[in-house]
Amino acid sequence: MIEDPYLGKYMTCVSARSTDKEILKKAQDGGIATTLMVYALEQGIIDGAIVAREGDLPWKPRPFVAMTREDILKAQRAKYNISPQISWLKEATRSFGLDKVGITGVCCQMQAVRKAQLYPINMRDVPGKIAFTVGLFCMVNFPYDSIQALVEDHANQSLSSVKKMEFGKGKFFVHTERGNVSTVPLKETHKYEQPGCHVCLDYVSNLADISTGSVGSPDGWSTVFVRTKKGNEVWLKAIADGMFETKPIEEVKPGLGLVMKLAKEKIDKNRKTLEERRNFGVNKALRDPYA
């Protein structure tokens, strides 16, 4: 077990890609999240999974309890605005009838899940039914109207014709159905960020069973951290069953160094924000959730 102040605890870190052609076609990166949930469902490790599916407006996600492969696939691709995933966590164990819940979500959502597991406040039956979680790397998230402004004003595209959005290489990329690619410099996006993200001290979903993101691996591949006993069990089984191609993280470009660099940047910056919040007003501090 490796313990790193920025990357959390993990057993292994690799670069990986799904071997499922159908999943890869529409995956954000290496299709890790979707493949793992489909695999867990088919193996009976979970009865269903909470995923972020398209909502009532283009690119507005909504949490969804998926109980089939098709439904899990409908949630492919990152939607860079808020999906209150964990609002379904209890209901999944109620009217949906799940005893083994799978959850995908960003770092803070993994934090909510683990807090509910250890301090289940009005979360009866939930702690024992959290079966498998896949966390995404996350630098920051946006309100819906921010994404609308970035895509429609800054990138001059219509949201409904966007095929994929992506952050990387200092830019925000907007790919349209017609193959058009617009970019927005990252620094223009900052003002639109969700304020709560500025005190977030996790970049790589430290509390998930398995966490994944694009950073560190080549295009079309994902970086994967296997973090818990449960995560390791599922990962080894999935590898044995040929669900993924993998490459040692040391052998890919840009590699773990970049992940580390970004994690450090994010967390140090947000620690500074927390520090600033301690002296925000005149002899008045803003709240510190970690205190």
Partner: peptide
């Protein structure tokens, strides 16, 4: 008062899950 007004909410959704009378929904994530 202590989460949203303090600039801390991240729209995770667990408040809605925990509410025993279903008083909380999320509108545009909040």
């Amino acid at each position: 008062n202590d989460v949203i007004n303090q600039g801390l909410c991240i729209g995770c959704g667990i408040c809605a899950a925990s509410c025993p009378v279903r008083a909380i929904t999320h509108e545009f994530g909040k």
